[in-house]
């Protein structure tokens, strides 16, 4: 018989839960702010590592007079701490300095390119997840079989190939033989295909590995035995119940590793001349445009904070325990 004690426990539990969730969200936002601040400082450190950026800027393209002019203009002749202070102050307003090449504010240069990169990344992740899910599910259903072992070796081999190598080979194989697939720039919606595939292919083995691990963990839990006893087929259990449960740790782990996994974005953008942040960074790096490099580092860091937040939101939507403030 359900006692009033049971009901009481439930009510108070829910009260506490609400507070717990709000605190969790607050904590995540605070972490995000710390990351962004860290990125701002980091960007300053990077560009000042080898001494005054004024010496480095422009590389060998500038004559000494031009260089001196730029140094005066952009204030690189001031002492380090003063530069740091003004940099931080400027960063708070979104002013990261000016690109010496175009004269535009560095932040604007970077932000213009940001949506293209975001689009590319979103498509690549979607493609990789869509491809990884069936592979992981089949791998779990047939685990231990010869076919499964063979497929894992293939995955491992695919994961060992350098992403830039895959990209180049892909360009050669596909765009030369299928001329309607553009390989350079962002001229039409089809332009998205090759870069997306090139970026997604190295992701797939990593996703399969993560998802497979998560699925195996879930499949070992007791409620799966109960589901089997109710008469559900293994195929259905893995593809429906186990998959949904596995998505929670999968998304969480993914969010943690996404920085490492998406490192190849710069290279892919360079190879396909995709007008995104990667290309901007590459150009800025070749031309030693210090302000743009700084702005880019900060923007990318913000992007990853947003991505992590998106992952958290996704977990919230899937897992009711998080909504109650209980961290699984």
């Amino acid at each position: 018989m359900s006692t009033s004690a049971d009901v009481d426990r439930l009510e108070t539990g829910q009260h506490r839960a609400g507070a717990g969730y709000a605190r969790y969200v607050g904590w995540r936002l605070a972490q995000g702010v710390v990351v962004v601040f860290g990125a701002v400082v980091l960007s300053f450190l990077i560009t000042n590592l080898s001494g005054n950026p004024g010496q480095v800027i422009g590389g060998s393209f500038l004559s000494p007079q031009q260089r001196q002019q730029i140094i005066d203009q952009l204030g690189y002749n001031r002492p380090v701490l003063q530069r740091l202070a003004s940099y931080l102050a400027g960063a708070a307003h979104g002013d990261f300095g000016t690109s010496y090449q175009t004269g535009e504010p560095a932040l604007r240069v970077v932000l213009t390119a940001f949506p293209n990169t975001a689009l590319l990344i979103a498509c690549a992740i979607t493609l990789a997840v869509v491809a990884a899910v069936p592979v992981a599910v089949l791998s779990v259903l047939h685990r231990g079989s010869a076919g499964d072992r063979a497929s894992r070796v293939v995955m491992m081999l695919a994961g060992a190939l350098p992403d830039f190598w895959i990209a180049i080979v892909l360009v050669r194989l596909l765009s030369v033989n299928l001329p309607w697939l553009p390989a350079i720039g962002f001229t039409s919606p089809q332009s998205l295909i090759l870069p997306t595939v090139a970026l997604a292919l190295p992701l797939i083995p990593a996703f399969v590995r993560l998802l497979r691990g998560a699925l195996l963990d879930v499949v070992g839990q007791e409620f799966v035995t109960v589901l089997r006893s109710k008469g559900f087929r293994d195929r259905f259990i893995v593809a429906h119940h186990a998959l949904r449960n596995a998505l929670v740790p999968f998304v969480t782990l993914l969010a943690m590793q996404i920085g490492w996994l998406l490192g190849g974005t710069i290279i892919v953008e360079v190879i396909f001349a995709w007008p995104g942040i990667g290309s901007v960074i590459n150009n800025a790096v070749q031309a030693r445009d210090v302000a743009v490099i700084q702005a880019a580092v900060v923007v990318v860091a913000c992007g990853y904070v947003l991505l992590n937040l998106a992952a958290d939101v996704a977990v919230t939507l899937i897992d009711p325990r998080v909504r109650s403030g209980i961290r699984p």
Partner: peptide, 12 residues
């Protein structure tokens, strides 16, 4: 760990 390493490498 949440910042992509290649970005840092390239910039630096």
């Amino acid at each position: 760990l949440s910042i992509p390493p290649l970005l840092v490498f390239v910039a630096a």
